[in-house]
Design a protein around this nucleic acid. Structure first.
Length: 231
RNA sequence: CGAAAAUAAAUU
């Protein structure tokens, strides 16, 4: 609770007080503190706490490592994020899809496609199945790098392997099409997703509305805004 | 003991 309120220091105070009272913090408490530190961009402190918890006999969980990977990645320290992944594997923990996805996203967003490909291979090696988030990240990357054909291939591929696209996946594609000035295509996707039982949300609508305004189709944009409010 | 806790999309 204190971490969520941004009061990390108070959270640490509580931990120290509980130790004084003979109550031993468990892995989850350390994990929360590490998350709080990462949220405050204090990733070095977070890393130190990971080491400290191990020394105190608390093994970091897969979630603890995930938080750190994400913390380093989101703070532009991609190599160190990769390093945490290696460390966890050395510690005998197999990364799950959340961790792979987190790292995959920063690799893609920083243009390190070679490393991203290698990470996908590693994911296969450890039998971690790509999920809807993995595909959404890849589709987003293809779209932002103007490879719409590739994005569509990925959509087909995920459906083929039984991975169901969700509202984020479709919204990502819609955004990609708007960026290519293919507003009509974007509308098609908007229609298709609903037909497949995936309801557009406020982000989906704002993506299309933004695309319409940028294409100078103000009337249509307002029309869609009204439709969104009505629905 | 415990899914209590970590990842992807628009605008800014």
């Amino acid at each position: 609770g204190l971490c969520n309120m941004g009061k990390i220091n108070n959270a640490f105070e509580v931990m120290h007080r509980m130790i004084q009272n003979g109550c031993i913090p468990d892995c989850k408490i350390y994990t929360e503190l590490i998350a709080g530190l990462c949220r405050d961009k204090k990733v070095d402190d977070a890393k130190r706490l990971l080491i400290k918890m191990s020394e105190r006999g608390c093994l970091p969980s897969i979630v603890t490592y995930g938080i750190l990977v994400h913390g380093f990645g989101k703070n532009g320290r991609v190599d160190e994020a990769c390093q945490i992944l290696e460390e966890m594997m050395l510690a005998g923990k197999t990364p799950n899809a959340v961790i792979f996805n987190s790292l995959l996203d920063v690799l893609c967003k920083t243009g390190r496609s070679q490393d991203a490909q290698e990470l996908l291979l590693l994911m296969r090696e450890v039998s971690c199945a790509p999920d809807v988030v993995t595909y959404s990240i890849l589709i987003d990357t293809s779209c932002k790098e103007n490879r719409l054909d590739e994005a569509w291939c990925l959509l087909r591929e995920m459906i083929n392997i039984g991975c169901v696209p969700n509202v984020v996946t479709y919204t990502t594609l819609i955004h990609g099409m708007c960026r290519q000035d293919d507003i009509d295509g974007a509308f098609q996707v908007l229609k298709v997703m609903s037909e497949r039982g995936c309801m557009p949300n406020v982000v989906t609508y704002s993506t299309v509305i933004d695309g319409l305004f940028k294409a100078g189709r103000d009337g249509k944009a307002v029309e869609l805004l009204v439709e969104m409010v009505e629905k």
